[in-house]
Structure formats: structure tokens, C-alpha cells
């Protein structure tokens, strides 16, 4: 007997993500899922974002790493609630892991939840966690060929932050190619050129984020 099915294999994990999202919506929390290679500057970006926005908004952070709690300690020093998830070898965060952190947060006091995914250019793109936006960080030393080589990451993201822009001249980063290829894959992608080191371009990113937080904010 033949049975026509046509169902997405990831529907079960997507259902959990949708439940997470409903909870975030109910509390007026904007959630970003921050993805990049290891070493692209995710934690520095999170630190910069917190320092500028923490007087205006309640911020919570979830740190995903295979092991260690170094990142959570960095973020904890800024005085915001942070939970470290150690995936113990898994290459990405999923909706279930995110859900398990909820008891650690007072959602009434949070407007922005930043989820720093495991450093990886492949798997995080394929899993939803209940985020409003996937934000992709590409640093110039990695090379401008990354959109062409890891297209799904760029296809799934709403924002591309090109970090370490101050290093671009020293590492022969072809900015035009990176932009062109990323937009070929995803014409709606918002692209900001930033440097967490010098502060270049961060204001445009933060303004984008402020508007998004305000659009869902509870009060």
C-alpha cells in the first residue's frame, strides 16, 4: 500500500519553536538567534549590544557552547541574567534546549532575549528556536566566499553583520562579493558593516534592534 504523506521532517522541532515563540510574544520579548563561525565576534557583539541598550531595555542572554561557561561569565559581568547551555557535542541549539532555560528568567523584566548559538556555519541555520530573527555575523578574516559556501545560513537570516570591518584592508576581504553573493541568496537581507573593536557601524545595528524591540515591547 502506498501512502502519500508530504510532511516536513522538522515539524516536531518547529512545533516546539512555535510554542516558545508564542510565550515570547505573550511577554513582549524580541528574540534574536545569533549565529556565526567560532571566533567571528558573537560574544563581543553581545557585550556591545548590552552596554548600549541595557539602560533602556531589559535584556536576557542564552549562551550556547559545546562546553565551558567562559562566555556566560563574560556576559554575567555586565549584570544581565544569563544562562549557559552546554550542548555536550551537539552542533546547534534547538527549541527544547531553549525551553529548559525558561525557569532561570523573569520574563516580565525582559524585552530582548539574545541567544548566542554554537559557533558553526552549518547546522544552526536549520533549526528554529522560537526567535523573531536569525542574525548572522560574518567576520572579514573568514573571507568573502562564505555566503557562496554556506548559503543556508544567509538564506535563513534577516540580518547580516559584517564584523571586523576595520581589518578588511589587511585580510583582502572582498566586500562587494560578500554583499552581492549574500543578496543573491537572500534579497531581503539587511546588511550592516560593523567593528566591535572600534565601534564602527554599531549604531545602525542598534537602531535596527531598538525598532524591533519597540515593535513587540510590552509597555
Amino acid at each position: 500500500m502506498q501512502i502519500k504523506v508530504v510532511k516536513n521532517i522538522l515539524d516536531a522541532s518547529r512545533r516546539i519553536a512555535a510554542e516558545n515563540r508564542a510565550l515570547f510574544d505573550q511577554h513582549g520579548i524580541y528574540v534574536i538567534n545569533l549565529m556565526s563561525s567560532p571566533g567571528a565576534g558573537k560574544t563581543s557583539l553581545v557585550e556591545n549590544t548590552i552596554r548600549t541598550l541595557q539602560n533602556d531595555f531589559g535584556i536576557g542572554v542564552i549562551e550556547g557552547d559545546i562546553q565551558d561557561s567562559y562566555d556566560a561569565e563574560r556576559i554575567g559581568r555586565l549584570g544581565v541574567p544569563v544562562v549557559q547551555i552546554n550542548t555536550g557535542g551537539a552542533c546547534h541549539l534547538d527549541g527544547n534546549m531553549i525551553r529548559e532555560t525558561f525557569t532561570n528568567f523573569d520574563f516580565a523584566a525582559i524585552d530582548l532575549l539574545i541567544v548566542e548559538n554554537v559557533g558553526n556555519l552549518v547546522c544552526p541555520a536549520e533549526f528554529e528556536i522560537g526567535e523573531n530573527a536569525k542574525v548572522m555575523l560574518l567576520s572579514t578574516p573568514e573571507g568573502a566566499d562564505k555566503p557562496a559556501k554556506y548559503p543556508l545560513m544567509f538564506a535563513e537570516s534577516k540580518v547580516l553583520l559584517i564584523n571586523k570591518i576595520d581589518l578588511a584592508p589587511y585580510v583582502d576581504f572582498d566586500l562587494d562579493k560578500a554583499r552581492r553573493d549574500a543578496l543573491a541568496i537572500n534579497p531581503d537581507l539587511e546588511i550592516f558593516e560593523i567593528s566591535c573593536k572600534t565601534g564602527t557601524g554599531l549604531e545602525q545595528w542598534l537602531e535596527w534592534l531598538r525598532q524591533k524591540i519597540a515593535s513587540v515591547k510590552k509597555r
Binding site: 502506498q2 501512502i3 504523506v5 510532511k7 516536513n8 522538522l10 536549520e126 548559503p151
Partner: peptide, 21 residues
């Protein structure tokens, strides 16, 4: 050339059909 736009190819894994007893 590199003036291109992706139209399809990102479709995620789907179960399409089963043959069963």
C-alpha cells in the same frame, strides 16, 4: 557571472511517500 538570484534549492527535508504493508 555573479549577478544571480537563487530561485529554489533550499527546500527542507520532507517525507513524501511510504510503501507499507
Amino acid at each position: 557571472g555573479s549577478r544571480v538570484m537563487v530561485c529554489s534549492g533550499f527546500e527542507e527535508l520532507q517525507l513524501v511517500e511510504l510503501d507499507v504493508d
